[in-house]
Amino acid sequence: MVNLIIDGKNVTAQKDTMVLEAARSAGVNIPTLCAHEAISRSGSCRLCVVEVKKGNRTRIVTSCLYPVEEGLIVDTRSERVQNVRRLVLELLLARCPKSEVLQKLAADLGVDPHPRFVPDTDKGKCILCRSCVRVCEEVVGVSAIGMSSRGSHKTVGPPFKEASSVCIGCGACVYVCPTGHIVMQSTGDKRKIWRRTFKMQACEKCGKYFAPVDQLKFISKKTGTPYKELAVCTECR
């Protein structure tokens, strides 16, 4: 066990846990966008910054990737931290001015409502945190989507910007997306995502459309469960 101080509170945490988790278990809230329990950490949204003090040195670090240390003094809401966080949010908002999540966070953190940066109009709500790419690779295991290009042209999507042949239409990327950039349209027996339309399977008992056929086929192949068994929705099982 490691002892540290977070916002003046003595906190004990297991070795190798991150400052973010230690803070949360001590009831200290740190805003985050890209830290999701289902996927590995990337530290890409930069919102979880905190000030850590070791000896006489303090520095700004991303708490989601900074492991706890004995005697560490963490300040999650010092003026310096708040300024960094506000700047990060201003930049994120300049990229995605339409994102409600970012707008709300900006209001909560007291970001000046008059933008300093010229807002982008063509980036949607994507902050390029790569969470969707990670979940597709690490959890789903199909890697249907990825980033393309770089710099200001960087976008997320299936390769060649066309319907992916390996996507199973599970919607995990929609689930982890912190800003609601990825759109999935479900209309009865069809589901549209990433430029592809998926046929939905109707539950053999209640008749409700509950999952894409491709996803059930994928699960069936991976687990060896016969498709017939999977064609029943979780509520009727």
Binding site: S143, A144, G146, S148, S149, P158, P159, V166
Partner: peptide, 12 residues
Amino acid sequence: IPVSRVYEVATF
């Protein structure tokens, strides 16, 4: 390697 990863490198 997934095609999406190869496409990432090719466009980067």
